[in-house]
Write a protein that binds this DNA or RNA. Structure first.
Length: 843
DNA sequence: TAGAATGAAAT
DNA sequence: ATTTCATTCTA
């Protein structure tokens, strides 16, 4: 009905976009990054934000740097703001958190259906729980607003220019490209296909997806880094804001981030290009930028850091010469070597390889001057090489080594190619990729495996590596929660590299698995040491209080399959190489360990993680629904128990946060999100029944507010929004139908709904002024009635009109089954109300 | 690509 | 009051 109308309208609007930019979400994706970049710039320049004009200028600068400078700019200022995605509201948070669960329960159910169920759950959700979400949402929102002061929820009537749309798409693509490529690229084709990156992917890949949260987080990190690194640079503002203990950490982050830089940064197209890696780079770069080079050095000695630096340098201003990059490159290599040396087993080989890579790189560097694109490519390439070398470390690499080299070369070529056509191609790629993906998936028993495995481009490989590293980290974390899955970290790394080459991993999946397992065992033994320690520190604290249980419910046993898609992917890839891998693992592991340590020490890990996370998520989106469920827990699972209280943080130790730095921030953030209660379906169902009771129970505090508030006078308004009403109506309608039809809608789901609704409405609706005795309720359901009854006393029977209507309708139906029931549907409200009156009268 | 849901903000 | 759009993902 109404909804339909909306949809149509919307579509029209978007249709203008042309390519199908698709929904809005995608467009905005870019923003957050840009913001960071901007901020960074700001830091370096120390300009105050204030004027839009300045912003514009900045934008231009960026644009110059950036690949594209499209017509968009005109809007940039605004657009930038707009770009940022709205913070999710409580309900959305809830959905995000529970959708997977719903899906698990009702695999067959389509998303919409799931949404409906979620809505039902939401309605049933006891106020207290709801409050949590609401608070979180609010907090989030506040933080978001803090970060983006001028943010407008509704876009300023954008100009319909098509060019823009196209540009937009490009941007998106760019973003998507990296991350996506990372994940999705199953086959080499990707490069070719790049053109068509689907927006979806883009969206998925897009960090933004995390929601503003990610942005905030990043921003926070950024800010922190800046502060830490260059306290001087940072303005008192930041510190001040930080000081504000009162505010939640999130909020603080936001403040910090916002204070230093301008609130809204225009999204720069170019930035969109960057992939996770790029982002990573940016982050690191930001640090470097903020402070003098010296600072940078201090902070980031690690290879990664250097890489980031390099990238940054090249990217930032083309101005810088490639030479510098060259110089840096060696460093990186050295670093890597050093790490390798730790193990020292095959360091020599590795070195050789590295040297090769360096040479290649150097050559490239020279070439690089051409254009930004090239630079970017190069950067990625460089990073890649470095990473590759790192990954390859192991002696085993015989096979791999060469490949590595190849990959580099290839990559270069590819990159150049890509660079030329980048934007458009990317899009196409994406689309094409999908199909490919699907095909692959088909082959494989599970969908899960698909995407990430093969990456052709350098960037991809780099990203992979990073991911792998990150994963390793995660894996460790996960271990705590789910022992089974964890293993993969080391293998993952390898897998990435390997993946690049081997297109067909699927075939072996099963076998591989077995092998994997074995390997895993081995791996576990050795690995744990490195990762574990590090991880441990973080993990220990964690414990996921209540949430866990729900999670725990899930059958981890699902086993691998259902498990995180990413993992699966990695594993698969692993399998491919597995054979060799086993031998070399040690070295790899060691390398990884070293890398990991470095990362941790520098805090880079955090950023990486975030990126990876995004990537994962995105990948997950593409293919698996299941993984969704997984992602949440595992990643964030480890929050420190103490604070876990979650709830708003109020004043947890402000100082600590600052001290801890990025990691802390992340944790906080994660925590919060995690903290949100997640109910297992079962639990939930139960709740639905018991809810009322709970409510009462809860009643002590939170719940009542509503009730108390209304003192009866206020009516439903507060709770109900216009839409909500509509929704309610619809629901009612459903009920009626059900009653009438007995034919009933069906499915268990519906039934549940029906069941729940009455209760819900009753509970919630208490706001309505109408009085009724519980008796009337009985009809709906004895069970419900029961629980309800319990409530009733306390509530003293206030029911919403809707509730009454429902009941009445039902009653009527009963009474007048013969009378045309259908009519009711037509005008549920009126009918219902009338009915209500009647019912009331009766009572 | 539309759309299911809720809610916050803007118009 | 109504519209927009945030998230997720299928048909």
């Amino acid at each position: 009905m109404v909804t339909v109308m909306k949809g149509s309208n919307r579509n029209k609007d978007h249709s203008t976009d042309g390519e199908g930019t698709g929904k809005r979400p995608k467009r905005k994706c870019l923003q957050w990054h840009p913001l960071l970049a901007k901020k960074i710039l700001d830091f370096s320049e120390e300009e105050e934000e204030e004027e839009d004009e300045e912003d514009i200028d900045k934008v231009h600068l960026l644009g110059a740097d950036g690949l594209e400078h499209d017509a968009d700019e005109t809007e940039d200022e605004e657009s930038s703001e707009q770009r940022a995605r709205r913070p999710m509201n409580a309900f959305l948070l809830f959905c995000k958190r529970h959708r997977s669960l719903v899906r698990q329960e009702h695999p067959r159910l389509d998303n919409r259906g799931a949404t409906k169920i979620l809505a039902d759950w939401w309605s049933v959700l006891d106020p207290k729980e709801k409050q949590k979400y609401t608070d979180m949402a609010k907090e989030y929102k506040d933080a978001f607003m803090k970060a983006n002061p001028g943010y407008k929820w509704c876009p300023p009537t954008n100009k319909p220019v098509k060019t823009q749309s196209s540009t937009v798409t490009n941007r998106k693509k760019l973003w998507a490209f990296p991350s996506e490529s990372t994940k999705d690229l199953p086959s080499p084709k990707k490069l070719v296909k790049t053109e068509e990156m689907p927006q979806l992917n883009f969206a998925m890949a897009d960090p933004t997806q995390m929601g503003g949260l990610s942005m905030l987080l990043l921003a926070g990190e950024h800010a922190l880094t800046a502060q830490e690194v260059s306290s001087s640079t940072c303005h008192s503002d930041a510190s001040n804001s930080t000081e504000g203990c009162l505010k939640s950490p999130l909020f603080q982050f936001a403040e910090i981030s916002s204070s230093p830089s301008q609130p809204n940064t225009p999204a720069d197209p170019k930035e969109s290009d960057e992939s996770a890696l790029f982002q990573f780079t940016e982050i690191s770069s930001s640090t470097s930028h903020s402070g003098p080079p010296e600072l940078t050095k201090q902070c980031g000695t690690s290879a990664l850091f250097q890489l980031a630096e390099m990238c940054l340098a090249s990217e930032e201003v083309k101005v810088r010469e490639p030479e510098k990059a060259k110089l840096e490159a060696p460093r990186i290599i050295k670093t890597l070597e050093a790490s390798e040396e730790i193990e020292s087993e095959e360091s020599e080989k590795a070195k050789i390889k590295i040297e090769k890579s360096q040479k290649l790189r150097g050559q490239e560097c020279e070439k690089t001057k051409t254009g930004m694109l090239e630079e970017l490519t190069r950067c990625s390439h460089t990073a890649e090489s470095a990473l590759d070398s790192m990954t390859l470390f192991g002696p085993d690499s015989t096979t791999e080594k060469d490949p590595a080299c190849h990959s580099q070369e290839l990559t270069i070529a590819e990159i150049s190619t890509l660079g030329l056509s980048k934007p458009e191609k990317l899009k196409k790629k994406k689309k094409k990729n999908k199909p490919d993906r699907q095909a692959h998936e088909k082959c494989t028993p599970k969908k899960a495996c698909k995407k990430r495995q093969s990456s052709e481009s350098d960037i991809e490989s780099v990203i992979y590596t990073i991911e792998a590293v990150a994963k390793g980290d995660w894996g460790a974390e996960k271990l705590t929660e789910v022992p089974r899955k964890k293993v993969r970290p080391s293998s993952a790394v390898k897998g990435n590299i390997l993946d690049t080459k081997s297109p067909k991993k699927k075939v072996k999946s099963k076998e591989k698995r077995t092998l994997k397992e074995k390997c895993i065992e081995t791996t576990k033994e050795s690995k744990p040491a490195d990762y574990f320690k590090i991880t441990e520190s973080k993990e220990l604290p964690c414990e996921v209080p209540e949430n866990i249980k729900s999670e725990s419910f899930f059958p981890a046993e699902e086993v691998i399959t259902p498990s995180l898609p990413e993992q699966v992917k990695l594993e698969d890839s692993d399998c491919n190489k597995k054979a060799e891998a086993c031998g070399s693992r040690k070295s790899e592991r060691a390398c990884k360990g070293a890398l990991y340590k470095t990362l941790v020490s520098e805090g880079m890990l955090t950023s990486l993680r975030a990126n990876v996370d995004r990537g994962k998520r995105s990948s997950g989106k593409g293919g698996n629904s299941d993984h969704e469920g997984c992602w949440n827990e595992e990643n964030w699972a480890f929050t420190p128990g103490g604070t876990s209280g979650n709830k708003k943080i109020k004043k947890p130790k402000p100082k600590e946060e600052v001290v801890l730095g990025l990691a802390k921030l992340e944790e906080e953030f994660e925590k919060k999100f995690n903290s949100l209660p997640q109910y297992s379906p079962v639990t939930f169902d139960r709740k639905s029944v018991s809810v009322p009771r709970k409510k009462k129970k809860v009643g002590n505090c939170s719940v009542d507010p509503q009730k108390s508030n209304k003192e009866s006078a206020t009516m439903q308004e507060p709770l109900v929004g216009s839409q909500k009403r509509k929704a309610r109506k619809n629901k009612i309608t459903h009920l009626v139908r059900t009653a009438d039809g007995r034919v009933s809608p069906a499915g268990g789901v519906l039934e549940d709904k029906t069941m729940e609704h009455p209760q819900n409405s009753l509970q919630k609706t208490s706001s309505t002024g109408v009085d009724c005795s519980s008796e009337s309720l009985q009809n709906p359901e004895s069970e419900d009635g029961h629980s309800i009854t319990s409530d009733m006393p306390s509530v003293s029977a206030f029911f919403s009109l809707a509730a009454l209507a429902e009941v009445a309708a039902m009653e009527n139906v009963h009474r007048n089954q013969r009378t045309a029931p259908l009519p009711c549907d037509g005008q549920p409200k009126e009918m219902s109300q009338a009915a209500v009156l009647i019912s009331c009268a009766d009572q």
